[in-house]
């Protein structure tokens, strides 16, 4: 099979998968009440950020505990463009990708010199420091109060087309095209020459360098791509209502990493599964604690306990995550 043809098939597959994801979310939202519809929009938003970790950690082996901070960069970038300069929401989302990618470029230049724990620690410090910049330069970033932004009202042509839609549904419709596009981009990136280069760097830097790969440049490029994705997610996340330091806490960064690990760091399907898990699991636990009449002082900590335990169990028993386990079962059935 010629190389050209291989690429064509991959392109078709990723297009179909992205459309399938889009339709799946739409169909699912029809079954849900407004609260769960907004949770679904959250999933679609956070999925973009989790995909950025799948790229960064899964494909190139760099770890970031500060994706939430990069989301804040995207969120503030787009919110400032809309509130101060009067840009349209859609353009500000696109520009948020470039703003955070630029930020990722600077970060990547520093990060390419770092490995493993150094990178983890530095990004963790960043996750704490960046929200505090918003408080420090209060006149520009509005401090703790934050900037109020929202998705606005659905346009008339859409309501004419599909009838009356709720605010929750509209937020899903705004986010979904970006999610599908992000999925398309990540699928294509990881299955092409670029993605193979990244994996080579991840698996063995020395042998990758000997094959003529520029390690530093590759790492920076990965960082830029992942930051662009995270920034887009941050912009969409902020437009739910508010862009403020409290919207992008350190825990957000860790939650995103947890989603990626639980699902399987190297799998895109795993990223989708993990994002569903971290958004819906707390709701599920809340329901259970209410039914069992567990006091609130304990119930408040149960989601964190469950997610932390899941993370530990995944790392110990099955480091490849849910996707890895699935593959393992499938493999066994064949034999």
């Amino acid at each position: 099979m010629s190389k050209r043809r291989e690429h064509k098939i991959i392109g078709l597959r990723s297009t179909l998968l992205s459309i399938a994801l889009f339709l799946f979310f739409i169909l699912l939202s029809q079954q849900f009440d407004p609260y769960n519809q907004s949770q679904l929009a959250n999933i679609a938003t956070l999925l973009i950020a989790v995909l950025s970790i799948t790229l960064l950690t899964g494909a190139s082996g760099q770890i970031s505990l500060g994706q939430g901070a990069i989301m804040a960069v995207g969120g503030y970038g787009s919110a400032l463009l809309v509130t101060r300069l009067g840009f349209s929401m859609w353009i500000s989302f696109i520009l948020a990708i470039f703003i955070s990618a630029l930020f990722g470029l600077f970060l990547g230049l520093a990060a390419a010199r770092l490995s493993g724990p150094y990178l983890a620690g530095t990004t963790l410090v960043m996750a704490l420091a960046i929200p505090s910049i918003a408080v420090r330069f209060e006149s520009f970033f509005s401090g703790d109060v934050g900037l109020s932004v929202d998705y606005g009202m659905p346009p008339v042509w859409l309501t004419n087309l599909v009838g009356e839609i709720s605010i929750e549904e509209w937020s899903l419709y705004v986010v979904l095209p970006f999610t599908a596009a992000a999925l398309f981009a990540v699928l294509n990136l990881s299955n092409t020459r670029t993605g193979r280069t990244w994996r080579a760097v991840r698996d063995n830097e020395v042998s990758a360098a000997l094959s003529g790969i520029n390690i530093q440049r590759t790492k920076v490029i990965v960082f830029v791509c992942a930051s662009g994705l995270a920034g887009l997610a941050g912009a969409l996340y902020g437009f739910r209502g508010l862009v403020a330091p409290s919207v992008y806490p350190t825990d957000l960064s860790l939650t995103l990493l947890t989603a990626a690990v639980i699902g399987g760091l190297r799998s895109i399907g795993g990223a989708i599964f993990g994002t569903f898990a971290i958004v819906f699991l707390p709701d599920l636990i809340e329901k259970i604690t209410k039914n069992l009449a567990i006091p609130e002082t304990i119930g408040n900590y149960l989601p964190a306990l469950t997610i932390g335990t899941l993370l530990l169990l995944t790392v110990i028993l099955n480091p490849r995550g849910a996707a890895g386990a699935l593959e393992h079962i499938r493999h066994r059935k064949k034999h």
Partner: peptide, 13 residues
């Protein structure tokens, strides 16, 4: 990377 993630899991728990 994996031990870093594991230690974060312990922290959360």
């Amino acid at each position: 990377t994996i031990p870093v993630i594991a230690s974060l899991g312990i922290l959360g728990v």
